[in-house]
Each structure stands twice: as structure tokens, then as C-alpha cells.
Amino acid sequence: MSTLTLNSAIEGVREDVINWRRHFHQYPELSYHEAKTSQFVYETLESFGNLEVTRPTEYSVMARLIGSQPGKTLGIRADMDALPIEEENSFNFISQTPGVMHACGHDGHTAMLLGTAKILSGMKDHIKGEVRFFFQHAEEYFPGGAQEMVDAGVMDGVDYVIAAHLISTLEFGKIGILYGPAMAAPDGFHITIKGKGGHGSAPHETIDSIAIGAQVVTNLQHIVSRNTDPLDNLVLSIGKFVGGEAANVIANSVEISGTVRSFDLKFRDSMPVLMERVLKGITEAHGASYEFEYLCGYRPVINNDEVTKVIEDTVREIYGDEAIDFPKPQMAAEDFSAFQQKAPSSYFIIGAGNKEKGIVYPHHHPRFTFDEDAMEYGVKIFTNAVFKFLL
């Protein structure tokens, strides 16, 4: 496949990709509720021809492009779900669904993969092997749509799988390549400290759950700073501390919730033990009791070196050395890791921030958006990479 032919085809879908993105942005749907989104994707894919389009799960879509010659199978994944955020943007295609918006770029991911599918569906005779397009539901909400799709068999026979994320904190024109660890495992925990409530004027007659909970919060931080190797990438953050009803009443109990992030699954064995040791010691010292629940989230996203090298080489050939960026691994999470358990894979990022256009807000912010010109980068990298993987 000549570069000229590919570039012409990519330019030909540019307007479609932008229109699809704006449609998805106007009509966002939350995780496990992507009924209209998935139906739109299904019908759009069917209109291209040469694709076998199916619904592996209730809210996901898969399209198979089987080439005219035998060969390997490459999977490409995009996520489709939105977030429970009230949008504060002012452009003319803002969310029409109160309290829901695409604040993480999934509308762009879906549009990019539709554009890629449209281009490649017209090149069936040039494909050796198979391309599978995975349109995934529920990336934002555990246990995640990726595992559901994998359990439904979408990865059976897949040799490689790739995915990309539009990132507003990386400048437009840059492509982030990550070898090895890319995204962390996002575990969660919930703690209830049970004391004995009473009047604020007589603390000696109570077991102050708030004071005890404050000590728990402080001492949990010592696990990372004093009980683990400082060279390990590990985060423990408290996101919720709830207790009390009135200023002059000592609370009977408090609830504490948070997250643990790491790239090494060994911490799923050690962290609950270390955390419970802190809880047990502090509550016993003050005559209180506790309940503790530790919840394992997605696996970490760990990129395969060989697959990542293909993506890097593709970017260098298209955009030159100056486009390559090697960002640090992020402690954010991604359920793309479920696909990674089945085949060598790579997850890369596409710079989509642009200060000149006022595109400066981070992901999950009510004014988040991205430079739509970045979607052409995604389409071009995906389509060119296909012909590298499926030689």
C-alpha cells in the first residue's frame, strides 16, 4: 500500500471523523449505558462494507476485516463511555445530556477508530490477515468493559493489540511512546472506624472515632514512605473521610476511602497486610474497632517492547523524530490491561493540548476538550501500523 494512497484516504475521512466525534460529544452515555452510542457505531460500521460486525456484549461492538490473503491478526481498541460531569464548555456541540459529558477523550477515540475502519474496509485486497476493531464500553467504571469483551472471546486468535489515548496535557504534534509500564493498577479500599459517640463537652466519656481516624490517615502514609522501597512506584491516597453530624457531637463512627496505585501486583499481597496492621494497632490502642475492605482494580498496563517499537517506528516514519516523546508512566488506570493478558500489545498517547486554542484543561474537568486535529494523527498511525504488523 503506497503512502500516497493512504494519505489520500486519510484526508478523505477527516470531516467524517470530526463529525462523528461531535455527535458522540453531544450525546454522551455513562459506563454500561452506551446503548445509543454502540448502536450508532454498529450501523456506521455496517455502512462501510467488507466488515463482519457483531455485538460481543450488550454495549460493545466488534468489526472484523478479513484480508484477501492469510496472515496475522491485529486488534485495535477504542473506548466509548462518558463521565458523570456537568459540562462547562461553550462550543456549539456541548453535551445535551444533563450531568454527563465526554471529559476524557473517548468520543475522539471512537471517532478515530471509525475513521480507521472506514479507510481499511476499502483496502481489503491489500490486507494480509485480519484487523479487528474493538469498540469497548465501560472503561471508566470497574470491573470494566474490556474484561467482558475478552471473556466473550474477542481476543481469540489475536496476535497483537494496540490502543491510543488523546491527552490534553501533552502538546499537539507529540506522540507519547511508553516501553514497559504505562498505567498503574488502581486498587481501592474502604475503612470504617467504630468508636463511641457522645457530647463534645465530655470527650472522656467517648471513643473519638474522628481523632482515631485522623491518626489512621497519617499513619497509612508511613506505609509508602517507611515500609516500601523508595524506588518502587507506589501511591496511597485518601479521597474520602466522612464522620459526624454536628459541631458539638463526637461521632460514633467515620468512613475512610482511598486508592492504592502501583505497577507491581506484588503490592496486592503486601498492602492489605500492612494497612490492616496500622488499623489494628491504632484502634486497639484507643479502644475502638474497625472494618476494612481492600478491592483489587484493573491490572497495570505494561507495554510489550516489540509491539511498542513498531508504533515508534511508524510515528518516526510519518512525523519524524521530533514528534516522539517518551513520557513517564502514569499512575492513572486503564482497563486495556485486560486485552494485554491475551496478546503482546502497546498503548500510546497522542498529544491533543493546544494553549493557543485555549485547550489547557486536564482530563475529567468540566471544561476538558482536545484539539480535533490530533485525531488525524491517531487515524494515520493506526492505518500505517496495520501494514507494518500484517506484513
Rank of each mutant, 00 (worst) to 15 (best):
E29Y: 02
M375V: 10
A103L: 01
E15Y: 11
V386W: 02
R277Y: 03
D151M: 05
F135L: 13
M271P: 05
V216Y: 01
H222D: 15
G144Q: 01
G297L: 07
H190A: 15
T73L: 01
H33M: 14
L295N: 12
A374W: 07
V379T: 12
Y377N: 09
E171S: 14
F389G: 01
S90G: 07
Q221I: 10
F172W: 10
E52R: 06
C104I: 02
A374N: 06
V249K: 13
P143T: 09
E46N: 05
G145D: 00
V41M: 12
F326C: 04
Q39E: 14
S95C: 03
S60V: 10
I162F: 01
K124V: 12
V217R: 06
A285R: 01
Q96W: 04
I381C: 14
C104G: 00
E376G: 01
T3K: 15
V53Q: 02
G358T: 13
A352L: 10
Y59E: 07
S121L: 11
I127G: 01
D335L: 03
H109E: 12
N19E: 03
D373C: 11
D81S: 07
F387M: 09
L114F: 09
N227A: 12
D107S: 13
P56M: 11
L170F: 10
V273S: 11
A182K: 03
F133W: 00
E140C: 04
E372Y: 08
